[in-house]
C-alpha cells in the first residue's frame, strides 16, 4: 500500500520535473544491451537510431560493463527516474529483473525484451522482439552442415554454457532433426562441448574436439564466440578441408574465415532489423496505434508486415540468413 503511494509521489515528481508528459512529446526509448563493447548489439542500436530518426522518437542507449545478472539494474532504475516511456532491454538474466520490471510497468513504462525472451517470466514484460523463428535455427544449422559434408560422418556441437537457454532449445531441435529426418541418418552427433562464450575456453574445447574425434567431419557452433573460436582452431590445425565449421556468427567476425576458405557458410539474422522493429512497435504501442495483442499486424516500411504472435512475441524474419563468399561483402555488422 505504502509502496504504491510512494510510487505515485515519485511519478508525480518525475512528471513535474520533465514538464508533464503529454501526447505531443516525442516517445522516449532507451535500449540496454547485455554489455558494452559487444559488436552484435551495436547493430541493434543502429536499427533503433535509424527507426527513431524516421519516427521522431528520442533514443538513448546505456550499458553495463559486464553481462552479469544484476549489472543492468542500476541503469534500469536510473532510466525510469529519467522518465523514459519505453525500456528495450536484452536481459542478462531471465528472472533477476522481474521486480524492477514490475515496478516500471506499474508506472506505465513499456518493457520490451529484445533479442531473447525471458522464458517462464513472460508476464513481467510487455512484448519480446526476437530476430527469427527460433524453432528453425536447429534444423537450419543441421541442413547447412549436412549439405557441406554430403550428409555423412561424425559431427559435434560447440555451444555456449551448459545452461544457455536459447542454445539449449536449438540443440534439442538439432538432435530431434538428426534423429527423425532420414535425410540425416548418416550424420552422427558424437558430443556437445561447452566453451562458456569465453574465447579461451571455446578454443581449448574446439581443440579437444579435434583431438578426441579424429574422424570428425563437422562442428556446429550456435554462438558467435564459439563459431569464431572453432574456425580459428580449424584454420590453425590446417584441417579446413576435413572439418567443416558452421554456426551462428556476425559477418565482421567471420569475414576473414569466409574469404580465406576456412568456413564455407554460416548463418545469422539481422540484429539491425530487431532494433528497427522494436522502435516502430514501441512508438506504435505508446501512441495507441498498435494494439499489443496476438494477431495485430505491425507494419515497418523496410521490413514489411510482422504479426504479433502468442505471448506478444514479434519475429523480425522467418528464416535465417546464410552468409557465404557470394554475399558477405554486402554486410557490415
Amino acid at each position: 500500500m505504502l509502496r504504491n503511494k510512494w510510487m505515485l509521489v515519485a511519478a508525480l515528481g518525475a512528471s513535474l520535473l520533465t514538464g508533464a508528459a503529454y501526447a505531443a512529446d516525442p516517445v522516449k526509448i532507451v535500449y540496454i544491451p547485455k554489455n558494452t563493447g559487444n559488436p552484435y548489439f551495436d547493430s541493434i542500436i543502429k536499427g533503433f537510431e535509424d527507426g527513431c530518426k524516421k519516427l521522431g522518437c528520442e533514443f538513448t542507449t546505456v550499458a553495463p560493463a559486464t553481462a552479469e545478472a544484476t549489472s543492468q539494474i542500476p541503469f534500469l532504475t536510473a532510466q525510469l527516474q529519467r522518465g523514459v516511456d519505453v525500456v528495450a532491454i536484452s536481459p542478462n538474466s531471465p528472472d533477476a529483473l522481474n521486480q524492477v520490471f514490475d515496478r516500471a510497468r506499474s508506472k506505465g513504462t513499456i518493457i520490451l525484451s529484445v533479442n531473447s525472451d525471458m522464458p517462464g517470466n513472460e508476464d513481467h514484460r510487455d512484448a519480446a522482439i526476437l530476430p527469427v523463428d527460433f524453432t528453425k535455427t536447429g534444423p537450419s544449422q543441421v541442413e547447412l552442415l549436412g549439405s557441406q559434408i554430403g550428409y555423412e560422418g561424425d559431427i559435434a556441437i560447440l555451444s555456449a554454457t551448459t545452461d544457455a537457454p536459447d542454445q539449449n532449445v536449438w540443440i534439442a531441435a538439432m538432435k530431434d532433426t538428426l534423429e527423425k529426418d532420414p535425410k540425416y541418418a548418416k550424420m552422427k552427433l558424437v558430443t556437445i562441448a561447452y566453451g562458456d562464450d569465453d574465447p579461451q575456453k571455446s578454443t581449448t574445447e574446439a581443440e579437444a574436439l579435434l583431438a578426441n574425434y579424429p574422424n570428425l567431419r563437422g562442428i556446429i557452433s550456435p554462438t558467435t564466440v564459439g563459431v569464431a573460436a572453432a574456425a580459428q582452431v580449424v584454420e590453425t590445425a590446417k584441417k579446413a578441408d576435413k572439418v567443416k565449421v558452421v554456426g551462428l556468427g556476425t559477418p565482421n567476425q567471420m569475414r576473414r574465415f569466409i574469404e580465406n576458405g576456412t568456413v564455407d557458410a554460416f548463418q545469422l539474422w539481422s540484429p539491425y532489423n530487431e532494433g528497427l522493429l522494436a522502435a516502430y512497435f514501441a512508438v506504435g504501442v505508446k501512441n495507441g496505434t498498435i494494439k499489443n495483442e496476438a494477431g495485430t499486424v505491425v507494419e515497418v516500411p523496410e521490413l514489411g508486415k510482422v504479426t504479433i504472435g502468442d505471448k506478444s512475441v514479434l519475429k523480425t524474419q522467418a528464416d535465417l540468413t546464410t552468409f557465404d563468399k557470394k554475399n558477405i561483402g554486402d554486410f557490415n555488422f
Binding site: 554489455n35 558494452t36 563493447g37 559487444n38 560493463a65 559486464t66 569465453d198 574465447p199 579461451q200 578454443t203 569464431a228 573460436a229 580459428q232 567476425q253 576473414r256
Partner: peptide, 10 residues
C-alpha cells in the same frame, strides 16, 4: 591466438 580483441572480454 584468438584473432580478435574485445574490450569487455580480452
Amino acid at each position: 591466438r584468438f584473432g580478435y580483441v574485445n574490450p569487455g572480454i580480452t
